[in-house]
Simulated scan of single mutants.
Amino acid sequence: MSKTRVAVGMSGGVDSSVAALLLQQQGYEVVGVTLRVLPDVDSAFDVENDPSVVRAKMIAEKLGIEHHVANCSDAFTGEVLKRCHADFSHARTPNPCCYCNRFIKFGWMMDYAKSLGAEFLATGHYVRIEEVNGVRRLLRGRDPGKDQSYFLFWVPDERRNHVLTPLGTYVKSEVREIAAQNGFVNAKTGDSQDICFDIYGSQYTEFLKDRFGEMTRPGRFVDEKGKVWNTHDGFHKYTVGQRKGLGVAIGVPAFVKHVDPETGDILVTGDKSSVCFDRVEMVNCEWHGGVREVGTTFRAEGMVRYRQRAVGCEVTIVDTNKAVAVFDEPLFAVTPGQCAVFYDGDMVLGGGQIV
């Protein structure tokens, strides 16, 4: 009887490496896939010597599994980089990880996995996928400090039905211990958070600007009375709720309250409470576990940024694309472009992009 074939997205990090090991131990036929997502800056990319590729290949050889390097730079450029550039251009603060998970990892890479004959795609995400009332649902990972369910809310049900996440029941220290026990070269390496952009050694806003052209324009820092406090050279460098790095001295700590993409002006305030909101509108929504009818209102706990404390709220489905959430208490720095994600306990109900 043939084994079920699973493709594991192997970044070269400890998490995906241990995920591949665990699945192999569970009896799956495992094949490793390392994505090359970013286009070359200087055409000097060497697949044989790229550190992430080398580490992933070493782990694959140790496990005795196939290893493939897949170039999805064109898809990543269109689905992630250009979307982020457009967001910044319209005074939104994008969440590239949510774009990447929906369109690249569980989009492009899943299709690539199928081309290799894989029935499932697995990753090293710290989330659980469990059957609830006969439906595979996304739940928080056991490790509260590493839970990544917020970033995966946008993955459609039909895609998640073909996803395995073996690290969901582990905490990070256990994963590192497993890696060390098995002699993995990456057992003690740091996390590869945001590595897609950090490998260029600069802020990705500047990378996007250099690649696709000017995103924003210079403008002024103004208060609610219209007083000009300073100027800036591009509003893409600032986000709602930001306090540090403004170069604005108004006598009290200043916070960004609003960014106007038409004028380039940034509204600042010394009243932190005025940067807190209890009503959030979302678009591009994705709901899980069955169709939610237009007009439906339900209770949930919501987050408007990663690792924020979940707060009780009432969510109303306005139409197939839009929803509104009213929170039990005001939330600090509700930021256009970021994602609002809703839970029932540990189970993800869905969410959308904040407008």
Score class of each variant (00 low, 15 high):
residue 204 Y to I: 08
residue 69 V to F: 11
residue 75 A to K: 09
residue 20 A to I: 03
residue 97 C to K: 03
residue 78 G to A: 06
residue 137 R to A: 12
residue 159 R to T: 14
residue 119 E to P: 00
residue 135 V to P: 10
residue 211 R to A: 08
residue 62 K to T: 15
residue 110 M to D: 06
residue 51 P to N: 08
residue 247 G to C: 01
residue 260 D to K: 03
residue 90 H to N: 15
residue 342 F to I: 07
residue 292 R to T: 14
residue 77 T to M: 09
residue 277 F to Q: 10
residue 81 L to C: 10
residue 50 D to P: 01
residue 281 E to G: 05
residue 300 A to L: 01
residue 39 P to M: 06
residue 342 F to G: 04
residue 60 A to G: 09
residue 213 G to K: 02
residue 158 E to T: 07
residue 35 L to P: 02
residue 109 M to D: 03
residue 342 F to D: 08
residue 157 D to T: 04
residue 230 N to V: 04
residue 354 I to H: 08
residue 193 Q to A: 12
residue 199 I to L: 13
residue 129 I to F: 09
residue 236 H to L: 01
residue 112 Y to P: 03
residue 54 V to T: 09
residue 61 E to F: 06
residue 15 D to W: 11
residue 26 Q to K: 05
residue 216 T to K: 04
residue 55 R to H: 12
residue 43 S to W: 06
residue 244 K to E: 10
residue 39 P to R: 06
residue 231 T to N: 03
residue 146 K to V: 06
residue 110 M to W: 05
residue 291 V to L: 09
residue 47 V to H: 08
residue 316 T to M: 10
residue 20 A to F: 02
residue 24 Q to P: 00
residue 145 G to V: 11
residue 304 V to D: 01
residue 73 S to F: 06
residue 136 R to V: 02
residue 148 Q to E: 15
residue 168 G to Q: 05
residue 165 T to C: 06
residue 226 G to H: 04
residue 55 R to V: 11
residue 171 V to L: 04
residue 131 E to T: 15
residue 139 L to N: 02
residue 50 D to H: 13
residue 149 S to R: 02
residue 49 N to Y: 03
residue 187 A to Q: 05
residue 91 A to W: 04
residue 44 A to Y: 12
residue 67 H to T: 08
residue 8 V to W: 01
residue 1 M to C: 07
residue 53 V to F: 14
residue 74 D to R: 15
residue 60 A to T: 09
residue 214 E to D: 03
residue 76 F to T: 02
residue 296 T to G: 02
residue 118 A to C: 15
residue 6 V to Q: 03
residue 184 F to N: 02
residue 338 Q to R: 12
residue 245 G to F: 10
residue 3 K to L: 15
residue 338 Q to M: 15
residue 181 Q to G: 13
residue 240 V to E: 01
residue 226 G to K: 06
residue 148 Q to V: 07
residue 248 V to P: 06
residue 209 K to C: 00
residue 154 W to K: 10
residue 125 H to E: 15
residue 82 K to F: 00
residue 94 P to R: 02
residue 320 T to R: 15
residue 189 T to P: 00
residue 15 D to L: 10
residue 63 L to R: 00
residue 132 V to Y: 10
residue 258 H to D: 11
residue 312 G to K: 09
residue 90 H to L: 13
residue 24 Q to E: 11
residue 82 K to R: 14
residue 36 R to C: 03
residue 153 F to N: 03
residue 133 N to A: 15
residue 233 D to F: 07
residue 213 G to N: 11
residue 182 N to A: 02
residue 205 T to Y: 00
residue 224 E to D: 14
residue 181 Q to M: 06
residue 221 F to H: 01
residue 255 F to R: 01
residue 51 P to T: 14
residue 13 G to E: 01
residue 288 H to A: 08
residue 190 G to C: 02
residue 313 C to P: 07
residue 212 F to Y: 07
residue 76 F to W: 01
residue 145 G to D: 11
residue 334 V to F: 05
residue 244 K to P: 00
residue 238 Y to G: 04
residue 211 R to E: 11
residue 38 L to T: 14
residue 126 Y to R: 14
residue 273 S to A: 13
residue 7 A to H: 04
residue 114 K to H: 12
residue 180 A to G: 10
residue 72 C to N: 00
residue 52 S to F: 15
residue 227 K to A: 13
residue 38 L to Y: 11
residue 157 D to Y: 09
residue 134 G to E: 09
residue 93 T to H: 08
residue 135 V to L: 13
